[in-house]
């Protein structure tokens, strides 16, 4: 009996000290996480436009609902009408305070315009005018890759009002 108690005690002590501890604290990240770049415009601005935002989507847009949170991940401040270039930084130009962006891959980054004074969350109110893409081919969206503790830069989008990109599903 004593041997059994001793053996069980040793096993329990071994398990107590040797087991996986489950959830662990994440590594500390001291530097900020985000992205920055510029949007350049060519062609003429539409006078009726009230808002122009750079927006980030987690996954490609396949249906109306994909245009909004949680797939809509980040919104940059509205770009002033008539601008020919807009430099932005996600840390300084976060339009929706409660939204944050963290490390990961984001499939669809675009500049979109709306003619509603307030920020609308209706797909039909928006038109995509520029896409973050490979080699200027707006039919091939490029993934935005964000690493923890780093600012991904050169996330540039060229908007040509005379050559708009293909529109995602939904809308007007």
């Amino acid at each position: 009996m004593k041997k059994i108690i001793l053996t069980v005690s040793i096993i329990i002590l071994f398990l107590i000290n040797g087991c996986d501890k489950g959830i662990e604290p994440a590594d500390e990240i001291t530097s900020p996480t985000g992205f920055k770049g510029k949007v350049t415009f060519s062609g003429n601005w539409n006078n009726n436009i009230k808002r122009t935002h750079l927006v980030v989507f987690k996954k490609p847009i396949n249906k109306d609902d994909d245009f909004f949170p949680p797939n809509l991940t980040f919104v940059i401040d509205s770009i002033p009408k008539g601008a020919s270039q807009f430099n932005y930084n996600s840390l300084e130009n976060n339009y929706i305070e409660s939204f944050t962006i963290s490390a990961g891959e984001y499939s669809y980054v675009v500049v979109a315009q709306s003619n509603t004074p307030a920020l609308s969350l209706q797909r039909k109110d928006w038109v995509v005018i520029g896409v973050y893409c490979e080699n200027g081919d707006q039919t091939k969206p490029k993934k935005l890759i964000i690493n923890a503790g780093r600012i991904s830069d050169d996330i540039n989008i060229d908007v040509n009002f005379n050559n708009p990109p293909p529109q995602p599903p939904g809308g007007m």
């Binding site: 987690k58 991940t73 980040f74």
Partner: peptide
């Protein structure tokens, strides 16, 4: 939705 962007 509570633990991932955008709300995080």
């Amino acid at each position: 939705a509570l633990v991932e962007p955008p709300l995080n």
